[in-house]
Design a protein around this nucleic acid. Sequence first.
DNA 1: CGGTATCCTCGACGATACTG
DNA 2: CAGTATCGTCGAGGATACCG
Lengths: 119, 119
Amino acid sequence: MARICKGGFEKEFIKEQRDVYGIAYTQNMLSGRWKYLILWFLKTKERRYSEIKTFLWDISQGSLTKQLRELETDGLIKREVFPEVPPRVEYSLTTKGLEFIPILDMMENFGKKFGEKPE
Amino acid sequence: MARICKGGFEKEFIKEQRDVYGIAYTQNMLSGRWKYLILWFLKTKERRYSEIKTFLWDISQGSLTKQLRELETDGLIKREVFPEVPPRVEYSLTTKGLEFIPILDMMENFGKKFGEKPE
DNA sequence: CGGTATCCTCGACGATACTG
DNA sequence: CAGTATCGTCGAGGATACCG
């Protein structure tokens, strides 16, 4: 990764090295196969664990839990547990997560413009 | 991955399944550690292979070539070879790649807002 | 300079079993 | 229902050597 503050850089790269941390942070936080899709799915409304699992249908339980924990740690989503039997857990976007929606929308539109529409 | 057109889906997920391909396409095309950073680095002007290599400083030659080939295959960047000695190769954004710049800018701003500024 | 080719490491992710 | 625990796989990416 374009690590910051590494010595020995050519002078002309110093500004780029100072500016790249923005996109490096975002890229790093959302790495992996699932996080964009999870955020996209939470965009319109809160969802239960099982809804996300069904939506992503070929993600394993272990991976899904890990992705959700990481998104929670990074402050993009919040997790709400309802003490019922059987238990219910709902995930939704935080303020920070909500601020990411415009990016999700642009990525969706970009994909719709250039990608193959299914069926 | 939220594969499309898989049978057996609950009815209420059909619309989401029809719409998710947009972001799934974009996410899939730009997977990995490097592609966003490469596009971001090409945003302002064309760059030589060695410039990109220096900018990303801890990417291996093999990986960098692979990333560039994939971005080229997906039509995001174009590769121009100047038949000089020693050879010179410049990479730049295509029309499709240029259309991705707003997304890069938003991701950069998001990261600058929430990430830790180095130094 | 800008690659290719080969081998290898490592961690993300999946599969499965089990639980409050 | 919504997890946790453990193990196994697989491929992206790194290291190294060599090339036009």
